[in-house]
Amino acid sequence: MSAIVTLHPARWWHALPDGRIQCDLCPRDCQLHEGQRGACFVRQVVDGAMQLTTYGRSSGFCIDPVEKKPLNHFYPGSSILSFGTAGCNLACRFCQNWDISKSRDMDRLMDSASPAAIARAARQHGADSVAYTYNDPVIFAEYAIDTALACRELSVRNVAVTAGYIHAQPAREFFAVMDAANVDLKAFTEDFYHKLCVGHLQPVLDILAYIHHETDCWLEITTLLIPGHNDSPAEINELATWIARELGPDVPLHFTAFHPDWKMDDLPPTPPATLIQARRIALDAGLHHVYTGNVHDAEGGTTFCPNCRAALIVRDWYDIRRYDLTAEGRCPHCTTAIAGRFGRTLGRDGKAFGARRMPVRIAA
């Protein structure tokens, strides 16, 4: 039995003189006839108007540690209620969540929940934040924005995990209600974006600059290093140098390990040595906080004071083993302020959530 699709009016579109509808959400600028879906698959022209077909429906809900997003400077040790829908507006051949983001099967969206229900569930389960993740939340921006507003009414924070492939006007409305974002900077060449993502690099760089300079949203960046495609020392240096110059040295950068998946299952996993080298290159380029992910690397998971180099937050994967920041988010050894959003205690009631993953069901 096929799932019932509930349509919700989409924003950010306009009618063309030839009768088609152009979606103005992202740089793909899909121009669609009646009944057609955009490249993201979840935005469809119905009765002459753009509709979102996944509003209120999710591929599942889970409570995770905030470090899994990954966010290392946004209330460390706290818990976050994560969810996504289906579809994506990029076509990355290396997608690590392809079963969700590439899905054309609406039956996958078995969990239904209103924005208010999600906000209530976050409070009931003790989650400090809600993460819009798994697939890219910009394609379900209407649902994400409404949920974020409901969360704010209950003092629950909002986090976007996104590739940042979105036009300026919807970006202003989307990031205005987000408290933090981790943006995937896939690579630092147009060739990579064009051939492996069917997209473009510059719109992502523009969004990174916008988030950091023009919003109150805390920003961290992730780059998945793929052997032979975006892991050369020269490209890593160029990427890190751009971040240091255009965004500043305090924006955290995460290098994570690729594993063979989707349409690039013929490549080897990223060697840990590649991530460790990338971290060193980025630090040498002037960045203060560079991390490695998806590998065991104690140094690459630790937050160091950029002034005295004291180890302030020591992590083992998603577990925090030591937390040595003052209540004001400063190094206790030299009083340097550490960039980020920090609470007066670690996690909830002074205890980190840890590496647990807790699936939850939400009543619609």
Rank of each mutant, 00 (worst) to 15 (best):
45 V>C: 08
359 P>C: 03
185 L>V: 12
246 E>Y: 04
2 S>Q: 14
354 G>T: 00
283 L>Y: 03
268 P>W: 02
269 P>R: 13
298 A>K: 06
301 G>E: 11
72 N>C: 10
271 P>D: 12
306 P>Y: 04
8 H>M: 07
297 D>V: 08
168 A>M: 11
242 W>K: 06
240 A>H: 06
104 R>L: 14
42 V>D: 10
242 W>H: 05
253 L>G: 00
273 A>H: 11
319 D>L: 07
266 D>Q: 13
167 H>W: 06
230 N>M: 01
287 L>Y: 10
118 I>Q: 12
36 Q>P: 07
364 A>L: 10
161 V>W: 02
167 H>Y: 01
62 C>T: 15
273 A>K: 12
184 D>Q: 11
205 L>R: 06
281 I>L: 13
174 F>T: 09
195 K>E: 14
308 C>D: 13
288 H>L: 00
307 N>W: 02
3 A>D: 07
268 P>V: 12
146 D>P: 04
260 P>Y: 13
238 E>C: 00
85 T>Q: 13
48 G>E: 09
202 Q>A: 14
123 R>C: 10
308 C>A: 07
189 T>E: 08
295 V>L: 09
173 E>H: 14
118 I>C: 11
147 T>Q: 09
180 A>G: 07
86 A>K: 12
214 E>T: 08
84 G>Y: 09
49 A>R: 15
141 A>G: 02
147 T>P: 05
328 E>C: 00
250 D>W: 00
90 L>E: 03
187 A>Y: 04
266 D>A: 13
134 Y>T: 12
292 T>E: 03
132 Y>S: 05
65 P>R: 01
286 G>C: 05
219 L>E: 04
166 I>Q: 10
112 S>N: 12
55 Y>D: 06
138 V>H: 07
302 T>R: 02
20 R>W: 05
337 A>G: 05
195 K>I: 08
149 L>K: 15
238 E>F: 00
257 A>G: 09
82 S>C: 15
91 A>R: 15
39 A>Y: 03
176 A>W: 02
364 A>Y: 07
96 Q>N: 01
316 D>G: 10
95 C>W: 04
109 L>T: 04
16 L>E: 06
208 L>M: 07
307 N>L: 05
209 A>C: 10
324 D>Y: 03
6 T>F: 06
344 R>D: 13
19 G>I: 07
89 N>D: 15
331 C>L: 04
288 H>K: 11
92 C>V: 02
215 T>L: 04
237 N>G: 14
244 A>W: 00
161 V>Q: 03
320 I>L: 01
135 N>D: 15
328 E>Y: 00
129 S>L: 04
45 V>R: 10
293 G>A: 15
155 S>P: 00
261 D>F: 09
357 R>Y: 08
260 P>S: 11
258 F>L: 07
340 G>K: 03
362 I>S: 11
287 L>C: 03
11 R>D: 14
249 P>C: 13
159 V>P: 05
136 D>I: 06
37 R>Y: 06
77 G>W: 01
272 P>L: 02
316 D>Q: 15
187 A>E: 11
330 R>N: 14
54 T>I: 14
18 D>G: 05
179 D>W: 02
68 K>L: 08
252 P>T: 10
